[in-house]
Amino acid sequence: MNKIKRKEYVGYLYILPWIIGFLTLTIAPFVSTFLFSFTDYSVLSGPKFTGLSNYVTMFTLDDLFLKSLKVTLVYVFFSVPCKLVFALFVAMILNRDIKGIGVYRTVYYLPSIFGGSVALSVLWRMLFMGDGLINRMLATLSINGPDWLGDTHYSLITISLLQVWQFGSSMVIFLVGLKQIPDYLYEAAMIDGAGKAKRFLHITLPLLSPIIFFNLIMQTINSFQTFTAAYVVTSGGPMHSTYLYALLLYDNAFRYFKMGYASALAWFLFMVLLVVTSLLFKSSGFWLHYMDSEN
């Protein structure tokens, strides 16, 4: 009994730094923002309890709240499927046994190493500015390119493309999933006369569905929280066309010092993510297949 307890004690000691970090940097802010969301708190002065007023303000007085929520939903519903489709497409190409495939895989993964970095956002801005590289290249083909970032019709799509371009991590996970699908299934299907499309629809997609599900959940959560791209590339403009929810939260917290209101915004986002994730889990029963599942 003592030995078991001692083993546990050593185990906890190993993960103690993580536990301390988790409690102080995750749980404490999590709880405190919930409490602050019911207060008027400017950082410089102590919080004053205001009940549900921050939540009421959000829905009744803040026109930017609904605007940024709408922009974020469009961003998520455009960028996440595009990113997953593109990542799967590239993963299937890189799943072939050709010479130097390791190099290709590394090159395609490179954009993701930079993550949501400022440098990458600055690069994106330079590429898509009115007289940026993209429009200059189009001009050589006698095409008058649009104002990708300055026109409200294109700005959100341009920002979304930055998210799509960082498909590397999803691609690697897809690649792992593709490698796990046994070859004999494809061979059997070929013998039965199934073409490429049928093999993809009836073997690849069903057996890859757990991976798709994982990527979908992770990328959805990630996209709802996107900040750097909109902040650096467009500052949310023009006309709030790229004013993502994280930007609204940042402005209220660190530019207007309305920490109470920003906390309420953060908690609303948390609830939205909870609902969206729950819906995805609920829907997974209809399209998720596990290889070892009897069904």
């Binding site: 500015m129 104002d147 300055g150 500052s235 403009g237 023009p238």
Partner: peptide, 12 residues
């Protein structure tokens, strides 16, 4: 009338 530069050119 071009007295001020168009906003779409300076939005960023």
């Amino acid at each position: 009338d071009g007295t001020f530069q168009a906003l779409n050119k300076t939005a960023l």
